[in-house]
Simulated assay, not measured.
Amino acid sequence: MINNIAERIKEVRNQIKQATQAAQRQPHSVQLLAVSKTKPAADVAAAHAAGQVDFGENYVQEGVQKITQLQHLPLTWHFIGPIQSNKTKDIAEHFAWVHSLDREKIARRLSQQRPAHLPPLQVLIQINIDDESSKAGIAPAQLEQMAQLIASLPQLQLRGLMTIPQADASADQQAHSFAAMQRLFLQLQTQYDQIDTLSMGMSNDLAAAIAHGATMVRVGTAIFGARTN
């Protein structure tokens, strides 16, 4: 399995390289986030042995368990799932990044509960770019207000934006959504110096996301295989 995961990571990195070349971008301008939800700690360790450092988790309890099991490894953990109020303390204490921030209450709780001895939590604002009722995220019109709030909180550092576009969108719809996210991201960069992360694109739409400025792609299935639940 270790060789299998290593080979898959190599293949995904090659896809990123090809997509960046097609978009006339540098390969190092796109970071790979390995989404390890529902996968055992042994798989994460195998991915790390293949050179992967950044890992994304959707479920707090499962993520914290893996972080604890693998604390001897120099890994960077990203929380990318929906955030419940009663889970903010665990997220603030264990993760380095949060991709799915979309509520003022959650932002305030994360800042208050981030331990003082840790660096600020690096956060991305989740945008519901296709206005889907089933998806989390704020509307683009709410971005300025949310960004101002995060900038005012001492234990959070705003780094950019994240989105999960419509799953069954056509290529044209997909490109439209990614282009809209790129415009929001570039606009945010003119307002805050530290904005450098646009988290969008997964196993199936990685190339399209990179063509529209993604700086981080979230890949799970193509690295670890199909999820077990």
Rank of each mutant, 00 (worst) to 15 (best):
R159V: 01
A147Q: 03
T215A: 10
L70P: 10
Q182I: 02
R13D: 05
R183S: 15
K66L: 12
T190M: 06
W97T: 01
S100K: 02
Q142K: 06
Q145C: 06
G56E: 06
A136V: 09
Q69D: 15
E7D: 13
F79D: 00
M162A: 00
S152T: 06
R218L: 08
A50W: 04
L124S: 09
M200Y: 15
H94M: 00
R25E: 03
E11C: 10
N204S: 09
S199T: 09
A207F: 07
Q126D: 04
Q174N: 03
A214W: 15
S199K: 01
F95V: 06
S100D: 02
R114Y: 05
L118M: 08
S134A: 15
Y59V: 02
N128M: 13
R159T: 02
D193P: 01
L75S: 03
I195Q: 10
Q142M: 04
M200C: 15
W77R: 12
L33S: 02
A22V: 04
V217H: 12
D43W: 12
A136M: 13
R183W: 13
T38C: 14
K37S: 12
V53N: 06
L149T: 00
Q24T: 09
A41V: 06
Q142F: 00
D54H: 15
S36A: 12
R114K: 14
K87H: 10
P74M: 08
L32K: 12
A47R: 06
R109D: 14
A151K: 05
V217C: 12
Q157S: 15
Q155N: 12
R227C: 04
A207M: 09
N4C: 13
A47H: 11
Q113E: 15
S152G: 11
P27E: 08
N14M: 12
Q182M: 07
G56I: 08
Q145I: 07
Q187H: 13
R13T: 11
I106P: 01
G81S: 11
L186I: 11
G160M: 03
Q69T: 14
I83Y: 00
A207P: 04
I129K: 13
G220M: 08
S170H: 02
Q15L: 11
F55K: 00
D172P: 02
N4S: 12
F178T: 10
Q21H: 08
H99P: 04
Q61H: 13
S177G: 03
L73F: 11
A147I: 01
V53Q: 07
T20P: 00
Q65V: 02
I138P: 05
A169C: 03
M216L: 14
Q122W: 07
F185E: 00
D172I: 08
V30E: 05
K37Y: 10
Q155A: 11
G51W: 08
A34G: 11
E62G: 09
A180W: 02
T190F: 15
E93M: 10
A49G: 11
A50T: 13
W97Q: 00
L186M: 08
L110H: 04
D196I: 02
S152H: 07
L188N: 11
V60I: 07
V98M: 01
A6S: 12
G56W: 12
A6I: 09
N14D: 08
R8E: 07
E7T: 15
N86I: 07
D193C: 01
A226Y: 01
Q21C: 05
E132W: 12
V123D: 03
